[in-house]
Amino acid sequence: MILFDFSSLLLGISFSGCAMCVVLFTAWLNARSESFLLTWCLGAAQLVIGITLFSFYAAGMNYVWLCFCAFVFLITGMTFIWGAAWQYRQQRSPVKRIIKRAALLLAIFTTPYLFGLSGIGAFLLNMILALLLFASAYEFWHRRHEVFGPIMGIIVLYCMVAITFICCAVMIAIESPLVMTEAPDNWAERLNAVASIMGMTGIGATSLALHQSRLARKHRHEALTDPLTGLVNRRALFAIYGNHDMPLNSALIIFDLDGFKQVNDRYGHDRGDKVLMQFAQVLRENYRTTDTAARLGGEEFVLVMPNSTSLVATRVAERIRKQFGEMEIPLQHNDSFYCTVSAGFALADKEEMTLEHLIREADAALYQAKRSGRNRVLPALSA
């Protein structure tokens, strides 16, 4: 529960809450995929309403119903704030969880009011708000690896404000344990008010920073990922290996789907896209965590295998070729067809061999595999 000094604290909390709502709502409008911002705004708006109603109660309008309504908005608003933290972590809609948790907490809080025990109700309010704040911090703790500094900052802010709510609950238990006849005025309430101003502003600003950081990572991921297959693209491959010599004993395999133009012409581009996605899946099932699979473009794919040998590269390429060649690609009316793939590979068996050098050698081997009948794997001359 919060006691406000109208000339500073109340105005500061309300202004900071409204300002952050506007800023974060505008940010959400520009990137609606990050909907945790909208959930946070809805929660903050309810907190502002609750704070405003309670300010009237603290100013002398000692109506129990007014205090009760203010507390209801504070609980539902803080539940939305927790829901935003859960949504940031899980990347899913929190609506059902918010409704269930808010209903449970409101039932716990309302019960003392039904018996006229407003002091117990106020005590429970502060404990509930502290619990929700700690729960919000816990949700962000699970994402601390994402952007460590800002997320640890937001965790500290949540915990700081939560502790001040616990202090308020302790003072209520001491001063008015059963019935609260007026808004309490003590050091804990003022400390809570100051912490709430700092917390709301800091959490809102940090949430905006997290939003911008996640948006930047998303754009970078999209720029380096082939949208059809989900593999890294040519740009990403050269970003990983293109600025320095390849590690010794690295193998590079180039795959090219045989007769892919005829697949598109005969069955349509939609079916051709399906073939590309199925081959990408075969690649995923056959490479190690240290390997890199990429789509160079069209029907051409690359697999880079550090710490490899000619024998290992041959076995992997042959396994991929055989598995893909045996894969039935369905059509309509219970019909189906099969595709094959050719491959060439090269080894970085000496120093000063770049990614581009290996691609040229593997591409030359691939060309020989195509000319000699397709559906086969051939090594580069140097391998």
Rank of each mutant, 00 (worst) to 15 (best):
A383L: 00
I51C: 09
E326D: 15
N192C: 15
E351W: 01
L178V: 07
R89P: 00
L104T: 09
E189G: 10
N30C: 04
Y241P: 10
E326G: 04
S93N: 14
I166Y: 02
E300K: 01
F4R: 09
I359V: 14
L355R: 04
R144P: 00
L131D: 02
H357K: 06
G12Q: 10
M200W: 12
A223V: 00
G119E: 02
E326L: 14
M198F: 10
E318F: 01
I151M: 08
L257W: 12
E326F: 03
G272M: 07
R92M: 01
G119W: 02
G119N: 02
R315V: 05
G12M: 08
G121W: 03
V302E: 06
P112C: 12
T164C: 07
T181Q: 13
F71T: 01
F56R: 13
F4Q: 12
S213I: 01
L3R: 14
P177S: 10
A205E: 03
A294P: 07
L366W: 05
E352D: 10
A59E: 15
S55L: 02
Q281F: 08
G149S: 05
V156S: 11
T354G: 09
H211W: 08
S118T: 15
L37V: 06
G202F: 02
H145L: 05
F324Y: 11
Y113S: 08
Y367L: 11
E318D: 14
D273F: 12
A183R: 14
A205S: 11
L125R: 05
N375L: 05
D258R: 09
S308Q: 06
D291E: 07
A59G: 15
S7V: 06
A44W: 00
L157C: 11
T26M: 08
A193C: 07
M171L: 03
N62C: 05
G149Y: 01
L347Y: 03
A188N: 04
A19Q: 09
E300V: 02
G268N: 13
L311N: 10
C159D: 06
Y241M: 09
W65P: 03
H221Q: 10
G242C: 12
E189Q: 13
S207H: 07
S342W: 01
M152S: 10
E222W: 00
L106D: 12
S7R: 14
L358A: 07
I108Y: 04
I172R: 11
S310L: 04
A346W: 03
M327H: 12
A346R: 04
K218E: 05
I108V: 15
A135T: 01
Y158G: 05
M160C: 10
L42T: 08
L3H: 15
R234I: 13
A280Q: 15
S55H: 14
F255T: 09
S136E: 03
P247D: 09
V232K: 08
E328A: 14
R101P: 00
D265G: 13
S136V: 02
N30L: 06
K350W: 02
C167M: 09
Q90M: 07
L283F: 08
F36C: 03
Y63G: 12
G298N: 05
I2T: 13
L303N: 06
F255Y: 15
I75T: 05
S8C: 06
Q281C: 11
L29N: 11
M353K: 14
A85G: 07
F109L: 09
M200E: 06
M277D: 07
F301L: 04
F6N: 12
Y338R: 14
